[in-house]
């Protein structure tokens, strides 16, 4: 089966009902998509399917085929970070960081459709994501910082 992941085509050998999270992690070595619950209850494994944030644990391969899959690795790299990734580092918006990947992906989708979200809107967008370390407020600050940065970048 062919998957379009982070802009490149990858051949994956797996049953078509295999949850995408296992193919990404074990076949393609993209460990950034973290497994948390397996039933779309925690948000740790979110990826973008085209432009929508969805759980990779609850997305079978057949549903991902033919779509653009973006993982946290596809958002940016240390050399060319996404504004969100830069902001998460500046705000030190993590403790254990296990929930970070899914949150970054959801926020990338959020900022793409709403470049100027309010604090309340960011929280609402993240309500499907659990953070156990209690870094929620840092994360919200980081998202608002990234949004500001993206807006000023576009204006410039």
């Amino acid at each position: 089966m062919l998957l379009n992941v982070n802009g490149a085509q990858h051949a994956v050998e797996a049953a078509e009902d295999t949850p995408l999270v296992y193919a990404l992690r074990n076949q393609l070595g993209l460990k950034g998509t973290r497994y948390g619950c397996g039933t779309d209850q925690c948000g740790a494994c979110y990826i973008l399917l085209d432009d929508r944030a969805v759980p990779a644990c609850d997305t079978p391969l057949w549903a991902a085929a033919g779509k653009r899959i973006t993982t946290v690795e596809g958002l940016g790299t240390p050399e060319r970070p996404h504004a969100l990734q830069r902001a998460f580092i500046v705000e030190q918006a993590a403790q254990c960081g296990y929930c970070s990947s899914g949150i970054l992906v959801t926020c990338a989708a959020l900022l793409a459709r709403n470049p100027d979200p309010s604090d309340v809107e960011v929280r609402a967008a993240l309500d499907r994501h659990l953070c156990r370390c209690g870094t929620h407020n840092r994360i919200v600050r980081a998202v608002l910082r990234a949004a500001r940065e993206l807006r000023s970048g576009q204006a410039a």
Partner: peptide, 14 residues
């Protein structure tokens, strides 16, 4: 944090 924010293998799970 950089590993965790850029989604690199860092955890025992990885």
């Amino acid at each position: 944090l950089p590993d965790k924010i850029f989604g690199r293998p860092r955890f025992v799970h990885d």
